[in-house]
Every structure is written in C-alpha cells, then in structure tokens.
Amino acid sequence: MSEARAETTIGNSEFDRDTALVPRGPGVHDAELSAGWTIFGAVNGGYLLALAGRALAEALPHPDPFTVTAHYLTASRPGPARIRTDVVRTGRTMSTGQASLVQFAEDGSEVERLRVIAGYGDLGALPGDVRTSAKPPSMPPYEECLGTRDASGASDEVAAMLGTTEIAGRLDVRLDPETSGWALGKPSGRGGMRGWLGLADGRAPDPLALLLAVDALPPTAFDLGLSGWVPTIELTAHIRARPAPGPLRVAITTRNLAGGFLEEDAEVWDSADRLVAQSRQLARAPRG
C-alpha cells in the first residue's frame, strides 16, 4: 500500500468530501453532486444512495443503515441538490426515516431525483451469532484480475467502464477474468459480474461505502452481451455488518431479463470473509 493510500482515512477522503452535507434547516441539507461519480453523464446510483444514507444518519438517532430502499425517479446530474429527511418512527433498537433528493430545473422548480425509505440501527450492538450457507465468491487473487490499467486498446465502451469514466478514477476495481469476457467481445451469457472493490484513495470501507459498493461494478447486462446505460429503477440494500479494513469482494448475478427489465442481486464480502451487504435492484435493460 502506498503512503498516499495509507494516509487516507474515513472522514479524510474524496468520498467523504463528495458526500458532505450543508445544513439548511431542520431536516434539510444542501449537497453538491460531484461530476467525479458519473458514468455516461449520469450520477452513479450507489453514490446517490450513500449521499441519502449520510443525510438519514444525521436525522435518525441510530448510526448505521440496516435496510435502504431507493426509487430512482429521474436521472441525476452533477450540480446542486437538496435532501429533505423525515423521521417516521424511532424505537429502542431501530429507527425509520425517509429522504427525498431533488435538483432544480432552469426555471428554479424542483425535480425529484430519488426517494428513499430506510431502517437504521447500531451494527456494533448486534449479536455475533452467524448461521449461514452463503460462501464468499470464488475469485483469483487481486493481482490476477482485470483492472483499469487493462483498459488501453479496448473498445470505447469497455475503456469507459474500466478506466475512462469519471467514477472509474475514484474506484479501485479488479474484475474476475471469468466474468470479463465481454471486455474482449466474448460475453459468457450467464449474467454475472465479480470483482475486488475499494476506493482509489485507500479509504477503508464503512457502512456508507457499502451503499456505494452494491452498485459500483459494471452491469451484468454486459455479460449478457448487451451494451449501453443500465438505469436503476429501484434498489434495496441490506447492510449486515461493519466491514473489516481491506478490499471488498463483490458478486452480482442476473437470472432473468424480460420485458426490457432485469434484476441484479449483489453480495459484498469483506476481508474477514463476512457477508457484509446484500442488495437487489430492478434496472432497465440497455437496447444495445
């Protein structure tokens, strides 16, 4: 790990700066959607989820997201935004809130981009008993996976996904070669995507970063032989534990593309081999 990476900590990274909020009034925050988290001109859905998650953490009495469900109403663009939060219910171990992220049209009117409802608690207070049949994804070591340095000479779209979009510069992604055949024009058709994931500046993962992680890899539609933007319609993330330091392993699968829509089921594992996040999203299939 380089010296620059080692010095970047939670609260002192580009991710934290780009999800910073400015209080405007009770339950209202201003934010600036950074162009650094875009792909094909639209702001990444996981980044938006983390931004709303930060606002809800400030509004609710519990610190950590347990379940977050977001409906993506219109495509977000870099620039000013406003987030409004409401406390729905508070209890001893969990609280529930909702958030709405809006941007502004040329005439000054508000355009709602994202609506979220979430349950929060304290991950550190959960019992340690684990009974699971889930297993970490089988992947080659980090060094043997496909990274941004491999983007040169690839097609425009592959290069965009691997290294030339804005968000690619903020992430350290290394894709499993078994799910990277699409990058060579040979998609498997199985609808899978697996890879190592971290923030490029070395910031350790935390629950907010897990909200980003569930929507950070290239879409499984690429492994189905499709190309183009895959906009998220709805995404539900479950955060199961505070992740250990180190790179995450993310595995995403699609089992059914029908009627122009597909689902993506994601699992996120930490360096201690714990399943720390799960998600399902419904997305619109690309037409390519």
Rank of each mutant, 00 (worst) to 15 (best):
M1I: 11
E3D: 15
R5Q: 14
E7S: 14
T8H: 01
T9V: 14
N12E: 15
E14A: 15
R17P: 02
T19V: 14
V22S: 13
P26H: 08
H29R: 01
A31G: 09
E32F: 07
E32R: 14
A35P: 05
A35M: 00
T38E: 01
T38M: 00
I39E: 03
A50G: 11
R54M: 08
A55Y: 01
A59Y: 07
A59I: 06
L60S: 08
P61F: 04
H62E: 10
P63L: 12
F66G: 11
A70F: 00
L73A: 12
P78F: 03
P78D: 01
T85W: 01
T85D: 03
D86G: 10
V88G: 04
T90D: 08
T96Q: 15
G97N: 06
A99Y: 00
A99L: 02
A99Q: 02
Q103D: 14
D107V: 07
D107K: 04
G108V: 10
E112W: 07
R115Q: 08
A118H: 08
R131S: 15
T132L: 11
T132M: 05
S133K: 13
K135S: 12
P136F: 06
P137V: 04
S138D: 13
Y142S: 07
Y142D: 07
E144T: 04
E144A: 15
C145P: 08
C145S: 08
C145W: 02
T148S: 15
S155E: 00
S155V: 02
V158A: 15
A160F: 11
G163Y: 03
T164Y: 01
R170F: 06
L171E: 05
L171D: 10
D172Y: 02
L175R: 06
D176W: 07
P177I: 07
G181C: 12
P187Y: 03
S188E: 08
G189A: 12
G192T: 14
L197T: 05
G198S: 15
A200D: 08
D201G: 12
A204R: 12
A204F: 05
D206G: 13
P207F: 09
A209H: 08
A209K: 06
A213F: 00
D215N: 13
G225H: 01
W229A: 13
W229R: 14
V230R: 00
I233P: 01
I233K: 03
E234C: 02
L235F: 09
L235R: 12
T236V: 07
H238M: 08
I239H: 00
A241P: 01
V250T: 04
A251F: 11
G259W: 01
L262P: 10
L275G: 03
A277K: 03
S279F: 05
R280N: 06
R280K: 02
A283S: 11
A283K: 05
R284H: 05
A285M: 01
P286S: 11
P286G: 04
